[in-house]
């Protein structure tokens, strides 16, 4: 019996889709059978980030409406064994699906796959309600900005109201240098307000933009710091106890040299 995780944030542009793609890929690299569901109907992106856009034949709405079997719509990623994508429809909108249908779909997929990751659209309307309907657990993504934290807080409240208990937090796009200068909220500031468990911190990394544009998840790139952060998050989701990345020390050559000379 698998587990359904919804990746959500409230605010747009904080990295839900990137996070879903990377955690999904990470889990498949560790030998799990994973389905990623894009519930952002009308504004689908997950397929692009995964580089699977050109292989879409059927989508989520086709499955819900019974135009195809679930298996037919699942796109198998050839690079990563055990990774499947159920893309969103692009020519419809959020009202094409209702929460009950999503719940049934999740129940069906749970039978066969270890993890079902749901990429939630921004906002708190129909799309959000659909996305969380079948979820057992939630991962809340935020960035160290007041507006993103505010929206995350709202989302956590809504998750709790919908019986999705104890969501986990990912703080994305952290810039240690700015935090150090006091120009950015620190992880502790964020946890103070949101009061939920932290599952990972992802540093701001230019490589992420390159990798999402190319459709190659950063988690598979051993040189990427953000990729390392996602690999750790993946392991924590599977229950391993891994310490947080020391972002301070892994900033570059100069700081490494400084560290060696204890400057």
């Amino acid at each position: 019996m698998g587990e359904v995780l919804v990746v959500t944030s409230g605010k747009g542009g904080v990295g839900k889709t990137t996070t879903t793609a990377n955690i999904g890929t990470g889990l498949s690299l560790l030998g799990k059978k994973v389905v990623l569901i894009d519930t952002d109907i009308g504004l689908r992106n997950l397929d692009v980030v995964l580089g699977l856009e050109n292989r879409i034949v059927y989508d989520l709405v086709d499955v819900i409406e019974g135009a195809c079997r679930t298996k037919q719509a699942l796109i198998k990623d050839k690079r990563f064994d055990g990774l499947y994508l159920l893309p969103a429809a692009q020519t419809r909108d959020k009202s094409a699906v209702n929460p009950e249908q999503m719940l049934n779909l999740c129940e069906e997929l749970k039978e066969e796959y270890d993890y079902i990751l749901i990429d939630c659209p921004a906002g708190i309307e129909q799309g959000f309600k659909n996305a969380i309907a079948g979820a057992d657990k939630a991962i809340v993504v935020t960035t160290p900005e007041v507006s993103a934290v505010r929206d995350a807080d709202r989302i956590i409240g809504l998750l709790e109201a919908n019986e999705v208990r104890a969501p986990k937090l990912i703080v994305n796009r952290v810039r240690p240098d700015m935090v150090k200068r006091g120009d950015m909220m620190s992880i502790n500031d964020i946890i103070d307000i949101l009061a939920i468990d932290l599952v990972g911190v992802v540093p701001d990394d230019e490589n992420i933009i390159v990798s999402t544009n190319r459709g190659e998840p950063a988690v598979a790139d051993n040189k990427s710091l953000a990729g390392q952060a996602y690999r750790n998050i993946t392991k924590r989701i599977m229950g391993e106890d891994i310490p947080l990345l020391d972002l301070e020390s892994s900033q570059g050559f100069i700081s490494k040299v400084k560290r060696i000379f204890k400057l």
């Binding site: 505010r150 929206d151 807080d153 709202r154 956590i156 409240g157 809504l158 709790e160 009061a195």
Partner: peptide
Amino acid sequence: RGTVRSGS
């Protein structure tokens, strides 16, 4: 009991 969050 618990945190009263944004929007409530």
